[in-house]
Design a protein around this nucleic acid. Structure first.
Lengths: 321, 321
DNA sequence: CTGTTAGCGCATTCAA
DNA sequence: TTGAATGCGCTAACAG
């Protein structure tokens, strides 16, 4: 294995100069720096991360924490794209992506603690934004940098990356009413009261008001309640849902009672394969991969100042078509 | 930070004895071992991984490699469960899960190379089983241990974890014909000719033969071809599909042409939220989390001998209900 | 069984 | 600007 000693030897310098040259330390001449870097490149020298990490006291890794309970069957595609976006950025920085995922909250916390204490990982991404989260608390307490995916409900100072859910809600509702000519849209959401659902609903309600239509919301919980809801609202001629699955489920219930065709639907996440439904489905793309990239930017903003208006927050735009 | 020196000092022994005690080295007395372990436990001592890794010349990490191109919208939920299964096992072994994921094959290979050369990672899991895979080639060449998810097509010596797709195909087809009383089942697959699809189809065909029904297969590619297929086969009264998405899509096309209700469907992966379809959907659970656990068992089988009939191969059973 | 010493690969202090 | 020496935390070879 090629070490820095070998490079130093071949260059006829000491290890410390080699080290300085390779790390762009200012205390070295331009000439030898370039000479040694060229040599290292030519020889195919690559530093040993474990050694670097040991001296640095910090690992070149970012911990990505998945939520425990799987409410998330529906969000999974999102996670993979997030990973892709994050790792793309990490590669450039010679960082590695380390995952904490577990069924139980206790085990997950242990996982993160071990990453911090034993692994010397100092930067984390939380793939959720729960309130009273023990992991976030632990990270705060240790003054470690972390970014949540989604706006945190309880701590305004946390860094986060999110969509502009309000704007996306407005955009989606406008699309439904303007482009798809819907007169009586229903807003469909889960029973979880997620923050992003409420924000999207607000957008919907705002647009509804401007169109002078009565806002109408259905929580998708007990199925017979939803069926009843549909019976009571035969006027519904379009769906806006907080995600693709809610949209498809409500649409299915609608079709149980009415014969409909080419039914206008706007939803979020762009997560279903085409051809899965015959509704006129327009799913808003939230660009999870871009969210991943932005997350890393925020995560390293102490080293690489960024130019967002609100430092600590990034909002990714949406696209509907 | 608490180091092994501190523990040694408090115990009144040298660092090396402390090290031996903590690593269950045989060359130490039972008494001091227990004493020091108790002390370390009490003081909350935890070893620094970077230091351990440096001396060991090997990282306590397993590299998990995702496939590049996303044919995989449909398989993503599977990935998350795999991660969960893998990480659950890694935690017990004080190992960490490191992810390689990228859009381009070149970048992915660089990612893995870096993990090996710079990160000293020696064990990998490939979330795919492609033929002529450059990453598998690289790992083989460096004599590193890796396990693929899915039976590799081209290299019989590779370790893998898979489902028993043939048996599952048989089980699914039997369920469709016996329990759901289907007389004219159609087998629906993608245009990819994945190995697992072919194996499941074989199971279907074998059962069809035993029931004296003509096997019938539809590749779900160009949509109008599928529509035509359906028109030509009005006798179809049940679906067996290689995954939930194919099942739902074919079912949708069927409903375009016929009024059907409570239609029997058997598919794989158990990946859709309930309530998404009104077909009588029975999705075969392949226990991806168990696959993850088994993967780790295989990955460490050099240290911890396992008791599978065929070393290097593990097949996870399925469940249908 | 235990302690002393050296070394893993690298960065950094201190001298020169 | 460069080199020699020291240490990061831990394990292992070698003595005793």
């Amino acid at each position: 294995m090629l070490t820095i000693r070998d490079i130093a030897a071949k260059a006829g310098v000491s290890v410390s100069t080699a080290s300085r040259a390779l790390n762009n330390n200012p205390r070295i001449s331009q000439a030898t720096r370039e000479r040694i870097q060229a040599l290292a490149e030519a020889e195919g020298y690559l530093p040993n991360y474990n050694a670097k990490n040991l001296t640095a006291g910090e690992a070149n890794a970012v911990g990505v924490v998945f939520p425990t309970s799987d409410h998330s069957q529906t969000e999974n595609p999102f996670y993979i794209d997030l990973l892709r976006g994050i790792n793309g950025q990490l590669l450039q920085r010679h960082y590695v992506l380390s995952v904490a995922i577990s069924k139980t909250a206790d085990e997950l916390l242990e996982n993160v603690k071990s990453m911090v204490v034993q692994g010397k990982i100092k930067r984390f991404v939380l793939f959720y934004a729960h309130r009273d989260d023990p992991i976030a608390a632990f990270l705060r307490q240790h003054h470690l940098r972390f970014v949540t995916i989604g706006q945190p409900a309880d701590n305004a100072n946390d860094y986060f990356v999110d969509n502009d859910n309000l704007q996306a809600g407005i955009g989606g509702a406008n699309f439904l009413l303007n482009e798809l000519k819907v007169k009586h849209p229903v807003f469909v959401e889960s029973t979880h009261d997620w923050a992003f659902e409420q924000q999207r609903r607000q957008g919907y309600e705002r647009v509804a008001a401007s169109f002078n239509v009565e806002p109408l919301t259905c929580k998708l919980g007990e199925i017979n309640r939803a069926r009843l809801f549909i019976k009571q609202h035969p006027e519904i001629d379009g769906i806006m849902a907080t995600d693709d699955y809610n949209a498809i489920e409500f649409y299915r219930l609608l079709r149980e009672q009415y014969h409909i065709t080419n039914f206008p639907v706007v939803s979020f996440n762009h997560t279903l394969p085409v051809g899965l439904t015959d509704a006129d489905l327009h799913s808003i793309n939230l660009f999870p991969e871009k969210m991943g990239s932005a997350t890393v930017a925020l995560l390293f903003s102490d080293r690489e100042p960024l130019d967002t208006p609100t430092p600590g927050q990034i909002r990714i735009p949406y696209e509907i078509k």
